[in-house]
Computed example of a mutant assay.
Amino acid sequence: MHQLIAKKLEVLRTQKPLVVNITNYVVMNNTANALLAIGASPIMAHSRQEVAELMTFSGSLVINIGTLDSIWIERMRFAIEHANINGKPVILDPVGCGASHLRTQTSREFCELAEKLIIRANASEVMALADIQSQVKGVDSQDSSESAVIAAKTLIERYHANHVVISGKEDFVVGENSVSKFSNGSHLMPKVTGMGCSHTALTGAFAAIDFENAGLCATGLLGVAGELAEKQSQGPGSMQLHLLDQLHLLNSRDIEYTLQCSVSS
């Protein structure tokens, strides 16, 4: 796992894939900076007039429903359709799924629509998406990430998702035949807005170069960067600053000595 992630990071920094993001107003700056720091090329594209063209040469599409309305839903639907036409991965972040009927139904519609799908969400969102009782508080999870593993497997079967990434105190990447558990990160990360959204964007970056292993790479690297950043941080403000630095500075040695992961069937 360590060598795989280190190698894919090297490939990403060489290829600098373009990641199209239709994301929420709160986190546009955060996710763009995270993508730039890791070595990818972000574009925040919300216009129907250009998204069809962009999907012909981009590497992937990130859909984040955090600030949802009827206009955004139509734009996102159109973008997913053109990702399908061009065979591009769609990474869905169903922010607040379970908090409202609109968010839940929209998330399920997009899962049905996307042909090359990865889902990245917190535990409560994953469980709500799978129609399993969850404890949702706005966009925050009240469930443990481990409790959502069964729900993630349900989503893989129902929507033919390649894998589901569950963020939490511990992160899980659930595939059809394996569950990978990551135990890095920092207690400060939940105190910085958009951290999960950055996780989604990074998954999009790696999906552009390796669809099968995108969740593993993004999850492992963000966790390592967060753990290293905490050592230099006094609170959430400096955490955000140092996290971007660590994403930029990550190398194979950091991965080898810091990454904590295990795989089960």
Rank of each mutant, 00 (worst) to 15 (best):
E81C: 06
N122F: 08
K8Y: 14
I38A: 03
D140Q: 09
I150T: 11
R253T: 09
E74K: 15
V136Q: 15
A128W: 05
L61K: 06
S262D: 13
E115W: 03
Q260T: 13
E256D: 12
L35F: 08
T56K: 15
C261T: 14
G66R: 03
E230I: 03
E227P: 03
N29R: 06
D131W: 08
E112Y: 13
T258H: 14
N30W: 06
N122P: 04
K181D: 00
H163G: 02
I209T: 02
C111Q: 04
T31H: 08
V62L: 09
A161E: 02
M76N: 11
A151Y: 07
I71P: 00
E146G: 00
I85H: 15
A79L: 03
E227F: 07
I22S: 07
I63V: 15
H242L: 10
N30P: 10
G96L: 02
A207C: 12
E10D: 14
S186Q: 00
Y257Q: 13
S198K: 05
Q232R: 14
R158T: 15
A130H: 14
A218S: 14
V95Y: 02
L4W: 11
S252W: 02
S107R: 09
T23R: 01
E146M: 07
Q240C: 08
D254S: 08
F78M: 13
S147P: 12
E10A: 15
T104K: 06
G226L: 10
E109L: 14
Q105T: 12
L36A: 03
I209N: 03
L92G: 08
K7W: 08
V179T: 14
S145C: 07
Q240S: 15
V164Q: 01
G235N: 04
T23E: 01
M1H: 14
M28N: 11
G196F: 01
S144L: 11
K191N: 10
N84I: 05
G168F: 05
S58I: 02
R13W: 11
N29E: 10
N213H: 14
A225V: 04
D69E: 11
D131F: 09
S47W: 01
I119T: 04
S252T: 13
N251A: 07
L243S: 12
G175T: 11
I71C: 10
R48F: 05
L243N: 11
A83Q: 04
A130P: 15
F211A: 01
